[in-house]
Design a protein around this nucleic acid. Structure first.
Lengths: 254, 254
DNA sequence: CTTCCGGATTGACCAAGGTCAAGTTGGGCC
DNA sequence: GGCCCAACTTGACCTTGGTCAATCCGGAAG
C-alpha cells in the first residue's frame, strides 16, 4: 500500500512511539498521547546492528539509553583477564544502558546476537522531556526497577544447586518473555550460542549441551540447534523446582 | 558537650542529611546545601531495627525508600517453597527498596542483621522534592544505577567456577566497602551468618566453613567466628583470580 | 560438489563441592 | 555455675558437573 510515499514514512517515523507495537512494554507504557508526542521528540532514530556488532562497550561515555526494537542483544562485563560474565539477553521492548547513569561511562558491553534494530534515547533530550513530563519520570524509574528485578531473577537462577533447574528456569523465563511479545511461547528460537547460555548460568558449554539432550530424552523439549520446542510446559515447570519437591515450606519467620 | 539540650538535638535531627557522616555516600552526594535542606523535609525519621526484624517484606505496598544509617541488613527473595536467595548485604549509606518502584509492591524482603538504624524517605514526599530539585532526580537515578552495577558484581562472583574465588571476591568487596566507610578494611566483623554467606554465593554452609579454614591455613585470614582479619590483602587479591593466572587474555573480539 | 571451520554433541574420566553425620563452641538463660 | 541450643566446624563419602578429547554437523567459501 502507499507505494513511493516516503514522506509518509518519515512522519510515521517521528510519531514512532505512539504507533509502535512495543508501546505497552516500553518506556511509553501508561503515558498519555499528548506526552507521547513529546517523548517522540527525544527519540533519535533507529539504528540497525548486524550480528556481533557492538552498541556500546565498557568505558564508552554515556550518551543515550537504547531500546531494542527488533532482534536481540546480550550485555556482559569483561575483567582485565578477559573473563566474561553475561549479564542478560535483551528482547524487543527492553531498555539498555542504565549501567552508565552512575558514572557517565558504560561499565558493560552490549552486542547484537542477530540483526537488530534499536531506538536511541539521547540522555540530554530524555532528561529535558522527563523534566517536563513527570509521568515519564516515574515511568523511567519503573523501568529501571524492572531491570533490578530482572537481575534478581538471574541471581535466583544462578543460586540453584542443580544445573538442570537453572536451565529449566532459563528456558521458562525466556518462553514467558516470548509470550509477552505475542509470540509463541512454546517455540523458541535461541539467538544466543550454547556458550552464551552456559556463561549466563555459570556453567560450561558441555553441561548445557548434555542438559538439552537429557531434557529431550525426557520428552520435555524438542531441540534442533537454535530452535527449541517446549513439548511439555508442565514438565518444564516441574523441572524448575528440583525433581518435584514435596509440600511448600511455610513462609515467613518462625 | 551541651548536656540536657534536647531542643538542640531536635533541630539537629531536622537537618540530618547536611550533618550526616554518610553525606558523600548517600543520596545527598553532590547536592548543594540549599537543596539539601529541602531533601531533609522529605526524610521522615530514623527507625531503629533489632536484629532479625523486618523492614519490609514481599508483597508490602511501596511506601518509602530506606537508607541504612548504622548497622546492616540483608535483602532476599523467597519462592513459594520457602527457598531463599539472598540478594545483598547492605551497609551504612546504602539505599534499599528500589524493587518496589516497578509495581508499587515490594518483591523482596529486608531484614536487619544486627541492631540498625534507618532513614525513611516516604516516596510521595521524595517525589515532590525531586520534582523541585532536578539535581536530586539525577542523583537518585545515579543511586539506582549503582544498585544495578552492584548486582552485576554479585553475578560475576556467582559465575565463578571455583568456590574459593567466590569467597575471596566476597571478602575483598566487603573490605572495600568497609574502607569507604572510613573503617579498617582489614578487620571485618561479619554481621551475617555462614548460612547467609553460603546462600549469597550459591554454596552450602559446609563449603564456606571449609574455605575459611583453608584460607586461614594459607595465612591469608585470621578467622574467629564473626571477626575476620585479612592478614595478607595481596594474597586475598590473588585468590580472586583462580590460583594466580598467567598472562591476561586479550580483550575485545577477534 | 568438496573443503573448511566454528559451534555443538558425546564419551571417559576425575575432582570440587554437595550430602550426611558427628562433634565443637559459645552465648543466653535458668 | 551448668544447661541448652543454634551456629559453626570437621570428617567421610559420593554425586554432579567440570575437563579433556574425539567427533559430528551445517553453513560459507571456493
Amino acid at each position: 500500500m502507499d507505494p513511493g510515499t516516503n514522506v509518509l514514512d518519515l512522519s510515521q517515523l517521528r510519531r514512532s512511539c505512539s504507533s509502535c507495537a512495543l508501546n505497552e512494554l516500553c518506556l511509553p507504557a501508561g503515558i498519555c498521547s499528548d506526552d507521547l508526542e513529546r517523548l517522540d521528540t527525544a527519540v533519535r532514530d533507529k539504528r540497525t546492528l548486524d550480528r556481533g556488532s557492538v552498541l556500546y562497550r565498557d568505558g564508552d561515555p554515556f550518551e543515550a539509553l537504547y531500546v531494542v526494537r527488533s532482534g536481540s542483544l546480550k550485555t556482559f562485563v569483561q575483567d582485565d583477564y578477559g573473563d566474561v560474565q553475561i549479564l542478560g539477553f535483551h528482547l524487543p521492548g527492553e531498555i539498555l544502558g542504565f549501567d552508565a547513569l552512575a558514572s557517565n561511562r558504560h561499565v558493560s558491553q552490549a552486542e547484537a546476537l542477530e540483526r537488530s534494530s534499536i531506538c536511541e534515547l539521547p540522555y540530554a533530550q530524555l532528561q529535558q522531556v522527563t523534566s517536563e513530563v513527570p509521568a515519564l519520570h516515574r515511568q523511567l524509574m519503573r523501568v529501571i526497577s524492572r531491570e533490578v528485578i530482572e537481575e534478581h531473577r538471574h541471581l535466583v537462577m544462578m543460586g540453584r544447586q542443580q544445573a538442570q533447574e537453572q536451565l529449566a528456569i532459563f528456558l521458562k523465563s525466556l518462553a514467558d518473555r516470548y509470550q509477552r511479545l505475542q509470540r509463541d511461547g512454546t517455540a523458541l528460537t535461541l539467538s544466543m550460542s550454547r556458550y552464551d547460555i552456559a556463561n549466563y548460568l555459570g556453567l560450561v558449554v558441555e553441561t548445557v549441551s548434555r542438559l538439552f539432550s537429557r531434557m529431550e530424552e525426557m520428552g520435555v523439549l524438542e531441540v534442533n540447534r537454535k530452535s527449541v520446542r517446549i513439548c511439555r510446559p508442565d514438565l518444564l515447570a516441574d523441572l524448575c523446582r528440583s525433581n518435584g519437591v514435596a509440600a511448600p515450606k511455610q513462609r515467613g519467620a518462625g
